[in-house]
Design a protein around this nucleic acid. Structure first.
Length: 491
RNA sequence: GGCCCCAUCGUCUAUCGGCUAGGACACAUCCCUUUCAAGGAUGGAAGACGGGUUCGAUUCCCGUUGGGGCUACCA
């Protein structure tokens, strides 16, 4: 053991991170990505991942959104530690912190009313571009006697932070050193005249209370950071480490929004995307393990994640690659994990009942196993599964047009095929293949000429798993019955 | 407008001064083949621009351009 500086840190000093969404809508992919990185970091280092709902904007926050956030995170498998913190429950502490800053001289009272302020701002901005309104501390920070007088009259006031001279800078885990001259930061309000806290104060107050050590969030928060650092310092609290992640854009390079189609994680859940694929895909937006590695299961993501791989550049969300990624996960995940998602979807689509799934579990697993290879989404599997789960099938028009072109000839061929199938003593792929290829030879045609019409007869579709696997899955009686049905269809 | 961040194929990215710039998605062609996938092979496709620093710049520095974010008694 050497005496490296970090070795003397207490072992209890594990990283504490949080995801702090405001419940004003569904959980979108950008938020999910931020949550994922915080979670990965905490899980990798054995720290805590906390969840805080920033619901201080009562007008926009809804319980439904909060629920959507819980559901989204749960679906993604991003479990949080400790109890959920609701920012709204801490407004008293926020106000206390604001008044402490007032008492210590780090803040002052501003008696300007909100409407008055807005009017002043409008007046300046009306002069055209280039004219930016700026609060003038000399006019707003009144002499003690004046403040006392107004206070005695019961005039309402907001509390404004007194931005000190100098430069505020921090070593960002993603960007390295970032610095802001304090002269560019306006004295900002931390407590409204109605006594409620403003965002930057609430965040800092809560992060201190929650003992957050690493603040990882979107880089749209970079310009909030100097204000927050100033608050930490004025409050006499230790600074957390900051990491600002790049944004996620839509295919047009603009900030991701509803216009880009599915942007809520719930949308992708309903489109049949697996949570592990979603996490894998999202992880690659703003982070890289280095090298050529792309497809990673959850454990590998945790094992490889690190701040060294964090990227600075905004990434474009490409749904095509997400679907490819999902196809990879569909094939590579243990069958049990895939079926755990697919089987309920089959029930949900009305193709099977929970009782049937339970009664024929192994058969169901075999079905999922055969279908998952050629699917990119759970919905793809559901769409392909119908012929195996329903008694009556419908015939796909394109498949019929292509494979049953000559109806009379097809009927005759299928009749011959039926006899071969029905006569099989052993129901194995080897037996089926041997018998069907013999039939093809005896008729002097290619085996495919038998397989294709048969596929349509058995499934009603032009595409399916290998023909012998289909036969095996259906079982001899149903296979024969399907061919009989096809013969009637062709009559 | 001011401040801040960013800049390699269409997209996600590798490269931590030596590059014939690698991989993946998408696209095209081919192979495999009972269909469709999967898999394999091949192809087209990139260092925004201008200055430095250096024996040597995609890589380091400066500027320009472009994109993004913030600029509230929103979060």
């Amino acid at each position: 053991m050497s005496f490296l500086p970090h070795a003397i840190r207490p072992v209890t000093d594990t990283p504490r991170l949080r995801f702090a969404p405001s419940p004003t809508g569904y959980l979108h992919v950008g938020g999910a990505r931020t949550a994922l990185f915080n979670w990965l970091y905490a899980r990798k280092l054995g720290g805590q991942f906390l969840l805080r709902i920033e619901d201080t904007d009562k007008a926009r926050s809804t319980d439904e959104s909060t629920r959507a956030i819980f559901e989204g995170l749960t679906w993604l498998g991003l479990d949080w530690d400790e109890e959920v913190v609701y920012q709204g429950a801490n407004v008293e502490r926020h106000a206390r912190d604001a008044h402490a800053l007032l008492a210590s001289g780090h803040a002052y009272r501003d008696f300007t009313s909100a409407v008055e302020l807005a009017a002043q701002r409008a007046e300046v901005e009306a002069k055209g571009p280039g004219h930016a309104f700026r609060v003038d501390r000399a006019k707003v920070d009144l002499p003690a006697a004046e403040v006392e007088a107004r206070l005695a009259r019961g005039e309402p006031y907001a509390i404004r932070f007194r931005v000190p001279e100098g430069t505020t800078e921090w070593p960002d885990l993603v960007h390295g050193r970032i610095a802001f001259p304090n002269k560019d930061i306006e004295d900002f309000i931390i407590l409204r005249s109605d006594g409620t806290p403003v965002y930057n104060l609430a965040v800092v107050s809560d992060d201190i209370a929650m003992r957050i050590t690493v603040v990882m969030r979107g880089d749209d928060h970079i310009s909030n950071t100097p204000k927050q650092i100033l608050l930490y310092q004025a409050l006499g609290a230790a600074l957390p480490t900051f990491a600002h992640l790049p944004m996620i854009h839509g295919t047009d390079g603009k900030k991701l929004s509803k216009r880009h189609g599915a942007t809520a994680v719930g949308d992708w859940q309903h489109e049949g995307i697996l949570p592990s694929a979603m996490c894998n895909f999202l992880a690659l937006l703003g982070w890289s393990p280095g090298g050529d590695l792309e497809v990673m299961m959850r454990e590998e993501l945790v094992a490889r994640f690190g701040t060294e791989g964090l990227l600075k550049k905004a990434a474009v969300f490409d749904p095509k690659k997400l679907e490819w990624m999902n196809g990879q996960h569909l094939s590579r995940l243990p069958l049990g994990e895939v079926s755990a998602r697919v089987l309920p979807a089959l029930v949900g689509a009305g193709l099977a009942t929970n009782e049937e799934v339970a009664a024929r579990h192994d058969w169901m697993l075999r079905l999922v196993d055969l279908l998952r290879v050629r699917a990119r989404t759970i919905d793809d599997i559901v769409r392909q599964a119908a012929p195996y789960l329903r008694e009556a099938i419908s015939y796909d028009a394109d498949a019929v047009a292509k494979q049953w072109k000559d109806r009379a000839a097809t009927r005759e061929l299928l009749a011959a095929t039926r006899e071969v199938i029905a006569a099989l003593a052993t129901w194995t792929p080897e037996a089926m293949e041997g018998a069907l290829r013999t039939l093809a030879e005896s008729r002097g045609i290619q085996a495919g000429k038998i397989f294709q019409p048969l596929r349509v007869a058995l499934t009603g579709l032009g595409v399916s798993p290998g023909i012998f696997e289909v036969l095996e899955l259906l079982g001899q009686p149903r296979a024969v019955a399907r061919i009989d049905a096809a013969l009637r269809e062709l009559a």
